[in-house]
Amino acid sequence: MLSYEPGDSLAHRLDPRSKLAVQIGFVAVAFAYTTPRGLAVLTAVTVGMLAVAATPPWTALAELKYVLPLLAAAPAVEALTLGSPWVVVADAVAPALAAYRILLVLAVSAAYVRTTPVRESRAVVQRHVPGRTGQFLGMSVAFVFRFLPVLQADLARIRDAQRARLGTERPVHERIASVLLSALDGAFDRSERFADALQARCFAWNPTLPALRFTWLDGPALVVAGGFLLAAVVTVV
């Protein structure tokens, strides 16, 4: 499961906004340079960024193993042809490059996720999305973060109970419905108790948030982000 790991790497000390800017720049540059040479350079850049985030490349790859089959399917299906010669390797080159590009983008965003606590990201949203919309989005994200493990545990418990009672012998739509009925009931109960608890604690539109501050470390990061965007614009124009 991909989530924040406390640490004191360079990336941990950056402002979340400069890390978001670097990610957006990286996406632009990866889409502008989807060539073997471009992707070779970007692979080196990705390894460098993972090093700055104290995330070993194999850890990032392990986080991404679930997307690999879907990415691999694109070049595999593309290479197939109906009729002789059945497999045309040349057709698979472009999708393979595109799939590899997606892998690099995901690795860079894994570095952000591992080095940025969710409350800092929430502070970015509430600072830059104006008014109550920003407050609503920020606090909801924080609540999702807190409730995800609770609801996962609920679902796992329900499925265990179903398996123990041979529920796995029933048709798929009945199994899904019975798991979800229990999960929904649980979630509605929780949301009502949670709303009561929030009100008891003066749930307000204007809570105090962690301060966001650019430091001198963010300078190089913003230069990198700007460089990526410039490089992307130069190729496209």
Partner: peptide
């Protein structure tokens, strides 16, 4: 923003 809610627990802008 990094809560692991996308398919199979992935997250991040890259998704």
């Amino acid at each position: 923003l990094g809560v692991p809610v996308f398919s199979s627990g992935s997250a991040g802008l890259g998704s």
